[in-house]
Design a binder for these strands. Sequence first.
DNA 1: TTGTAGGCGTTATCAC
DNA 2: GTGATAACGCCTACAA
Lengths: 330, 330
Amino acid sequence: MATISDVAARAGVSTATVSRALNGKSTVAPELVARVAAAAKALGYQPHGPARNLRRQETAVLALIISDVENPFFTALARGVEDVAHADGYSVVLCNSDEDAEKERRYLAVALQERVAGVIISPSGGTTGIDVLAGHGIPVVAVDRPLPAGTGDAVLVDSVLVDSRKAAFSATEHMMKEGYERIACISGPTGVRTADDRVIGYQDAVHRGLELVRRTEYRAGGAHAATIELFAQPGRPDAVLVANSAMAIGVLDALRELGLRPGRDVGVVAFDDAAWAGLVDPPLSVVAQPASEMGQAAARLLLARIADPHRPPTCTTLAAHLIPRASSTR
Amino acid sequence: MATISDVAARAGVSTATVSRALNGKSTVAPELVARVAAAAKALGYQPHGPARNLRRQETAVLALIISDVENPFFTALARGVEDVAHADGYSVVLCNSDEDAEKERRYLAVALQERVAGVIISPSGGTTGIDVLAGHGIPVVAVDRPLPAGTGDAVLVDSVLVDSRKAAFSATEHMMKEGYERIACISGPTGVRTADDRVIGYQDAVHRGLELVRRTEYRAGGAHAATIELFAQPGRPDAVLVANSAMAIGVLDALRELGLRPGRDVGVVAFDDAAWAGLVDPPLSVVAQPASEMGQAAARLLLARIADPHRPPTCTTLAAHLIPRASSTR
DNA sequence: TTGTAGGCGTTATCAC
DNA sequence: GTGATAACGCCTACAA
């Protein structure tokens, strides 16, 4: 693998000149830059990133740690991050923490050790390890979920969130207006802020205890089981608010097994406007979140903080909006 | 940011000893390793990855370059790669080329410059840049799609593919047995091997020209337009083979707009067993691909080649299987 | 304008 | 068993 001195030797100049020529720095005689370029090409020279980063003490790569690559919400968010980052010359590496605190810690450690320029993360719970990052001067932006309380207190962390509570409230209220009276709520794990907020928003609307609330992992399987269980009990629900699209699949599956038709027999509204939501029968009412915009906003905040580490931290809260379809209309 | 010499100073030993102690190398007096550990902890010492990689000339990170993060097939594949890589102590960074040759080149360049240990890629077309990688001794595994002809000829590249042609043949034959007679095919871009193969397999079965074949990008929008166009012409199809799940959404949408019911009015089989496929009305027949297994196989091949760069290249071809549901049953 | 030389943080090779 | 010391490949004062 050719190094800068190989290039220098072949071009008959010093390594300093090669470096300057290749980086378009200061003034190098046009003839020399041509010679250098030719030599570099001939040798298939590729600058050694680690060496360069070691010397410059900086990298042009951002880490994006998301809690579930298989969730379309997060992949849409990732696209938003990439678009903004690429426009500014940064590359984005995607890390999948899989809602697993251990994997999250691991990726955080990698990000720190590789000295990435910054990190965007959707924290998967009672995370630690973020303080370490920020403590070492690596900027962090929290997206979709805030950092756990007590984390990042002393450091400057921006966040980009959705008003989940309000969105859950609107969705629940919508179902009440449609005449549903016993509305259930199937949400994600306790301790995950979006999941907690969706329950709180739901409660704001129904003024009821937790007897119709079920918490499970953010996946189809758990939601399926929760649905079966909810509808097996006496005083079964007549509607359900579902906290994300993976769970919606489990719920719809379960309802079909139970012979219950959404819209007619039971109202259903789910978070996230999945591509297939309009295709099921009847079409699924959803709370659409601006995933891509969230990613863009997070990336912009991160880049801004990289440029100016001392700017005051901000918290951007975006709104979600209800798209009523037949599954919640009698 | 504490360095190894800070730790050495605090522990009252040399940097060499710190390095050895922290890496569990050779023989260091138990007392010293304790002192070093304490000092490192007190200082919040984190090894500097680039420096270490520079010195060691190796990294424990793999790059996975996929053509579409928003496609569930690729995210499932990514999970497979991660599982195997993590078990072996490697981290995986995910790069989204977005079916864009330019972005692909860019990520390839990043992978090369950062000197990752290896690359798994689903090539997005007439890619160049892979030779460069392999030429520099970085192992490459092609997944889902083979490298373009003429690429990587001289170098050792493993690949993990699906027998798309056979799968398309089976799916088409299945529809013929169900009595459909004018079967159309909506596939991805020309030059993308999976898309080409699905058309060929289809033709193997129908023994017909290309008048009912449409090629478009691998997304819902293009498939939607193609469907509308196909069904507007005289001698409209009575069935359609769709090349992936994003396209299936476009097709199903279009059919609904046209007032055509899958299964009864028009047979539909799509590639990829998306989570929602069983939920639509009627349930969608699919060709299920072993995405996660493909990722696992690719990762294993890559790790094997990293361990032994001279092993002969292999090509693993996995089978897909048809899951007939109501959309292709009269 | 160009070259020389030092150092970024580690690890590996030698002495001791 | 431990400590100097020399690289790894690059960039950038500083000197010429």
